[in-house]
Design a protein around this nucleic acid. Sequence first.
DNA 1: AAAACTATCTTGACAGTGTCAAAATTGCAC
DNA 2: GTGCAATTTTGACACTGTCAAGATAGTTTT
Lengths: 203, 203
Amino acid sequence: MTTLKKHYHHGDLTTSLLESASLIIKEQGVENLSMRKLADIVGVSRTAPYHHFKDKNTLLCSLAEQGFKEQEKDLKRLTHQKNASRESFERYVLMYLEYARSHSEIYDLMFGRTIWKAGTPTDSLKEASKQTFKAWVNWVEQLQQGGVLPNSNTPLRIGQTTWASLHGLARLLIDGIYLDQTDQSEMTDQMIKNLCLNDLASP
Amino acid sequence: MTTLKKHYHHGDLTTSLLESASLIIKEQGVENLSMRKLADIVGVSRTAPYHHFKDKNTLLCSLAEQGFKEQEKDLKRLTHQKNASRESFERYVLMYLEYARSHSEIYDLMFGRTIWKAGTPTDSLKEASKQTFKAWVNWVEQLQQGGVLPNSNTPLRIGQTTWASLHGLARLLIDGIYLDQTDQSEMTDQMIKNLCLNDLASP
DNA sequence: AAAACTATCTTGACAGTGTCAAAATTGCAC
DNA sequence: GTGCAATTTTGACACTGTCAAGATAGTTTT
């Protein structure tokens, strides 16, 4: 973005576009990203991006895909660590919510309707999201075996519901409905309690 | 919408716009609602709507507000019914998810970023949503007293988290991420189990 | 070396969007 | 009927995504 060559051929427009787009949506939100502004910032004509991305939707899918890849890496690291303790799970929940907060626009692309309903998810994106979810379910399985998450159902089902809960919380924190910082942290604490298997041992 | 008078003055443009807008977003999604098309359908010029709604955002807020009002009514009915049983809660959860599914576009307006983040919620909308949430918390309190929801925290906090979970599930069902019908119903069942206080009585 | 080819980028154009300012039309109170 | 206020229209502007056709540069072939 900073290095703008004045050659006819840009060099590596594809990644340049992705980087700039990522920056724009981070700072101004996805609704303020236009292909034309993006092209302008990268220093190229309006339609140049269309030789690297079929359309705007495809570009957004690419952005979302990066997010999934990153999340999958985090999950796999946790799973290989083989530390399925409650503390470990708590750390992940906090990490998940922090990611959602600090990359709220990417998060919205990953799970929001912009791509999944209004747009059309790329095959590549669908695959990435599926892979990430699989990594999540794997970790949930470990957490069940570690006695952190309930064993009352399959890893898939427990994974779906606890993730839905986490996702719901993330959305509320992100979408501008809950802004009070105190509420946010206490909601998170309570949510963890809701998700985890209660320790029923008497004191 | 069906009755189009050819007078200069439309009669009741405000409600006519709301009705048509509601129909359009239901059938084509909120991203396919344009002020111009809307005006055209109602049989009025492009800018006529702007004398009834400050801008598109305000119109959408009005739509969302209707949704909140309806939801509040449902909740108050439940509360006055004083039947804080698990069955009653289950019915509400199913009803909530069914509303989200069948009015997915309105639901998205009520809780999504279109209004709350990308746009600016009207004072009137903020008030309506606050009122609805209060009604929800009131019912949660009854459910806690009825031993359906956990008593480990205040009605506000428990209300926030269980609603977040419900909302997360609703979003997944709505936003096109989970489409498989079998998964949907089993996820719902499991979610209810997660939310409710487990009956620990031995058989 | 020149010529042919391919990848990349640009210009021009079209249909669509939200919304503002000024002008036109109408219904109602007097 | 006259005046006023509510309502609607026309014109305009600055945007948007994206297509078709042409221009340019780097690469390969001869």
